[in-house]
Design a protein around this nucleic acid. Sequence first.
RNA 1: AGGACUAUAGCUCAGUUGGUUAGAGCGCUACCUUGACAUGGUAGAGGUCCCCAGUUCGAAUCUGGGUAGUCCUACCA
Length: 922
Amino acid sequence: MDKIFQPANIETRWYEEWEAKGYFAPQGGEKAYSIMIPPPNVTGSLHMGHGFQEAIMDALIRYHRMAGYNTLWQVGTDHAGIATQMVVERQLEAEGVSRHDLGREKFIEKVWDWKEESGGTITRQLRRLGSSLDWSRERFTMDPGLSSAVQEVFIELYREGLIYRGQRLVNWDPALHTAISDLEVVSEEENGFLWHFRYPLANGEGHLTVATTRPETMLGDSAVAVHPDDERYQNLIGQMIELPLTGRQIPIIADDYVDMAFGTGCVKITPAHDFNDYEMGKRHDLEMINILDDDAAIGSAAPEAYRGLDRFEARKRIVADFDALGLLDKIDDHKLKVPRGDRSGVIIEPYLTNQWYVDAKKLAIPAITAVEDGDIQFVPKQWENTYFAWMRDIQDWCISRQLWWGHRIPAWYDDEGNIYVGDSEEAVRQAHALEDTVALRQDEDVLDTWFSSALWTFSTLGWPEKTEDLDIFHPSSVLVTGFDIIFFWVARMIMMTLHFRKEVPFHTVYVHGLVRDAEGQKMSKSKGNVIDPIDLIDGIDLPSLLTKRTTGMMQPQLAKKVEKSTKKQFPDGIDSYGTDALRFTYYSLASTGRDIKFDIGRIEGYKNFCNKIWNATRYVLMNCENEDCGTDESATVNLSLADRWIISTLQETEDAVAQAIANYRFDHASQALYEFVWNEYCDWYLELSKPVLWDDNASEAAKRGTRRTLIRVLETSLRLLHPFMPFITEEIWQTVGPLAGKSGPTIMLQPYPVSDDKGIDNAANADIEWLKGVIVGIRNIRGEMNISPALELTVLMKNGSNLDKTRLEQNRQFLKKLAKLEEVKWLSEDDEVPVSATALVGSLEILVPMAGLIDKDAELGRLAKEIDKLQKDLSRLEGKLNNPSFVEKAPAEVVAKEKEKMLAQEQALAKLREQELRIRDM
RNA sequence: AGGACUAUAGCUCAGUUGGUUAGAGCGCUACCUUGACAUGGUAGAGGUCCCCAGUUCGAAUCUGGGUAGUCCUACCA
């Protein structure tokens, strides 16, 4: 074995082997466990959020697979309508071609080409993370099976009246030329203006002043509204306004939506271009004047002078025209929320169009109940509130998109505007007995990507066919996802699945936090703080990292800044840490309900942990290979105190890990493992094994016992660690497994260790605690007194109990080796006590004679520190016990415990004071 | 506007139903290449548990009120 662990040498090799041998496929087991991967964009690439999410899922999957469940991790990718179409359109743009030049069919071919070309990236990267996904079942949201599921669902919901077509105001993206759902609109506060316009009364007797943030929409005004109780305007209600620039007259109406305190208390109403105005327009039966076209330029319904102007150009012109007419009252600075498309980034227009909707209110009812009743549980639980809040006020879901890439809506129209929904044109003709002479054309639109994602848990298992997989693996066990898509995806999955399967899609939703950079900033290309998980695995040099971060930026002017901060943070690029270290870092940071700041220091530490495991293994193998490790059960085996203790501690660790996984506390699991392997097994047990293995006088049965324990505990630890660190554990297990009497082709399919109470040995635990106390006491003297570590000491003990004496006899060899002692002597009452440095373990005094070793002042200093600490503690205890209400009201065992503590502290203090005097007199 | 979350060592974070001397990793200091590992070992320093009040014998933990930060939802022209 190499002296240092080299992850690069093993990871890909093992992954290929696992995949080739089919270990990822479900195999047997009575109970099923399944997770459906949140399908990443097919043409996307891996980011830190994926890495985190996949690591969590893989740990759960590997754990349950080893625990004997029939385990499925369903893999697949999403066609990501808008995102993917945009990428391809941009590529065409670079060639000077638009999608319309190509035509629908050719364009879609191009998208499929792009999918073939780039679709392997994300799946390759998932493999690098060690994700044990069943690739033999890989699905794609637009493959034939899933497409037919989508079609089936659409047709059925339409038949039930839960999907309908209607003309309404939608969020229109003028750049992408499509409607988008409420969720795809992101509103952020921006600086703008509030323009005050004078609207003359039609009777020529003065004017009203309205305030607006969108002057251009005045071309579509169909009323001015005031509050019905507003005394200023009572006499004007019902009168007409002469709307400037348009030659139209509009009424003044009263509606209590108007806030009297805001602006002038008069609101211009544009029903076709504002959601609130739209509602008011419906209430008052106002005219809906659509003044825009698909580009959000001024359209044909507007006065000729403005037609064809871009919306922002029109705004300038209209403000100028009002000014020229003397009707511009004033312009105030104003902060307002500006709605932008989450993909295009352009300002969204409320726009009147025909779209398809899902009646979400009806579907939401059982979806709310399922969570209320606990059929679905969120972890952490507080996300249920978020879910309820949204679901109880859910709006109908606009599912049609004016795109080409996606599932085309299975609806046909005749020339009279009748709608026919069905599997195909032929099916529709047949169902409705339509002659060939009736011309039909299919709806041009496609469905929102989330429509197909909503079916993910059951469509991937073969639905609408009745499949065995559906019986076995549905509902799935847990959904692992980020809070950002609870509405987009989780809620809709619950609604659709309950409706079509009459069962929940999953029993648990584990909601993880967002991965941020070391400063807590969201990672984004424009900030240039994105870390690619693959770069953490393989490492990357500075020039490559700089290139990566500065190419393809939306705002190239930021490149200099990004370059500077990158150079500062990673002056030498990023080291290679390997997948296991990366994964372990994710687990260690995965406490619930909290975003994680990704700190490069952590991953460094876990790389060292891998190396520690590696080297511990080297030590074990050195001592166990070609030796008798007790696999032959007939040979006698003597277990030392240390053997029994480490076995006992292992049981506790197994229990802690199982608990942690059951509670989705991966941070606790990783910490328990780290602590056991490093602080107990390596720091203490390996050291304690040396006195036995290197002792020529030790019996063969004792050596056999220690070797057996060494190798078995290591082998068990590897299995315990495997769900978290799949590669290093597999690599090592191949050698260690057989020595521990295990056989099998892979650790992946070995049973997961289960804690056994029979292994718990409290006596051994207590004895080792004692031993550790003595050793640490002596080491402390050594360290504080600057005694050379090379020097073997003679140590004296006095004033111990019989138990102390027994323990000393049992542990003499351990003690001598670990504390580096020449000799340990027990002093009787009458023996003269040389001047010594002292440590206390309970009432036992451990003395290190000072002659020639220790300087007086140093020891006095050390004692003073100890005494000070004890005194502080003691006065706290005294205060507590002198408080009558504590003694009366606190539980008896608490009081007893405190008393016991105080007694011990008092004795210790007395001894240290004695010691102090003795040293002074030296 | 409504709601959620967060505040503990220099940094990143744990801390069960209130009962500890408040912990870990990284960083820091000193010493050490001892036959698994210097990606290591040993010892050590370092905390007003954001602030105020309350409940309690006892509060990092429970309650109320602040302060600071992050986020979500809705939105007034």
